[in-house]
């Protein structure tokens, strides 16, 4: 495993730790999109169906279990925890899941590496992950106050896929890996979706101002 891949996984893990900290310690999920979190559960469940069938490494299995467990528990807290659920911005989190899930599923049926259940689900998970942040970004844009934890959470989540892009470049040129258009292009799209957010995040950080996205 190269350093970019590890950095990607660690920023991903850190983003989840940050979000869980906000939920468990501050008892708040203000500014967090339940829609996006539910999409991540679907992403992990469909991508890691091979967990019980194929073993890659201890690291790989543990990380999969952590991502599955934490994403499900985040959704549980936001939906059912008696204090946390009251901080959820239900009225502004109105992005419809189906508008993302359905096109991604159709695309995965049409464009995939092999027409098998595992491959189609895996491809679907990549397409869906690429756009799963959209409800969260819409929610941030509608929020007057974005707290630091939420801003940092979204930033780390974006940084994660950016590191993966570097990892794929490294694997292609240094480790002589094959061309893999499906993860590369969906990963590129996923990172590009954050471009606007990155711009305002870095700007607010440089000027030591509170993060605010223009409506």
């Amino acid at each position: 495993m190269n350093a970019f891949r590890l950095a990607g996984d660690m920023t991903h893990l850190l983003s989840i730790i940050l979000l869980l900290h906000k939920i468990r310690a501050m008892k708040s999920c203000a500014g967090i999109s339940l829609r996006t979190q539910e999409l991540y559960v679907i992403v992990f469940v469909t991508r890691y169906v091979d967990l019980s069938m194929k073993y890659y490494s201890f690291y790989n299995s543990i990380m999969k279990i952590v991502f599955l467990g934490t994403s499900i528990s985040i959704v549980w807290y936001m939906r059912y925890h008696k204090v946390v659920k009251q901080t959820y911005n239900k009225d502004v989190d109105t992005f419809r899941h189906i508008f993302l899930i359905l096109p991604c599923f159709v695309l995965a049926l049409l464009i995939n590496r092999a027409f098998t259940v595992i491959e189609v689900l895996w491809t679907f998970s990549l397409y869906l992950e690429a756009v799963a942040i959209l409800p969260q970004l819409v929610l941030l844009q509608r929020s007057r106050n974005i707290d630091n934890l939420t801003g940092n959470y979204v930033f780390l989540l974006g940084a994660y896929r950016a590191f993966y892009l570097l990892n794929w470049i490294y694997r292609f040129f240094i480790e002589n890996h094959q061309v893999r258009w499906i993860p590369w292009l969906s990963g590129l799209l996923q990172t590009a979706i954050y471009a606007d957010f990155f711009y305002y995040y870095i700007k607010s950080w440089k000027n030591r101002e509170k993060l605010k996205l223009p409506a």
Binding site: R5, D9, H12, D50, K54, Y56, S57, N60, M63, K64, F67, W122, Y164, N167, R171, E175, N176, H177, Q178, V179, R180, P183
Partner: peptide, 10 residues
Amino acid sequence: PSNGNVHDEL
């Protein structure tokens, strides 16, 4: 090109 298995990623 070698193994190039992206399924080993997360």
